[in-house]
């Protein structure tokens, strides 16, 4: 049986290196999970909200560590933990860019005059759009609500 230099290194310095690979893969996974958490925390900033930058930076680093651990140590557990990071990153990117797409509205697109309305505010007082715009410009902000 031939022994490659890599096997030789693995045999001679076995344990510490394996432990290292496990540590690296877990660190990678923590970074990967931390990515979306950091994103949620910083979401008030509209650039961060739209780009997802902090999530992708941490998830990319986490995935790199995971892949590095798998390259170093071929045990099943390391593979599982190490490959989970890139998988989660791909899943997050998929949801972020495709899963959260919203349907464009033809009706909204063609509006030139805002439809009139009277709706209750948070205290239950009726607010009429006509009355508001009679005194100044109104910015209507339609949002998905509390969740």
């Amino acid at each position: 049986m031939s022994t490659t230099p890599r096997d030789y290194v693995a045999q001679t310095s076995g344990r510490p290196k394996q432990r290292q690979a496990l540590g690296i893969s877990i660190l990678g996974l923590l970074l990967t999970i931390g990515g979306p958490m950091l994103y949620m925390a910083l979401m008030a900033n509209s650039w961060i909200r739209a780009s997802g930058a902090p999530a992708f930076v941490l998830m990319f680093l986490g995935s790199m560590l995971g892949i590095r651990a798998v390259a170093r140590d071929h045990r099943l557990a390391i593979r599982g933990i190490g490959l989970l990071s890139p998988l989660l990153t791909i899943l997050f990117a998929y949801i972020f860019f495709w899963g959260l797409k919203l349907p464009p509205s033809q009706t909204f697109e063609s509006l030139t005059i805002a439809p009139a309305f009277t709706l209750p505010d948070e205290e239950g007082r009726a607010v009429s759009l006509d009355e508001v715009v009679a005194s100044g410009p109104a910015l209507l902000v339609f949002y998905r609500g509390y969740w």
Binding site: L102, P103, S105, F108, L111, I113, A114, P115, A116, L129, D130, V133, A134, P137, A138, L139, L140, V141, F142, Y143, R144
Partner: peptide
Amino acid sequence: LPAHVLVARDR
């Protein structure tokens, strides 16, 4: 659907 509309006099 999230949207923003700036409305002036006469809507």
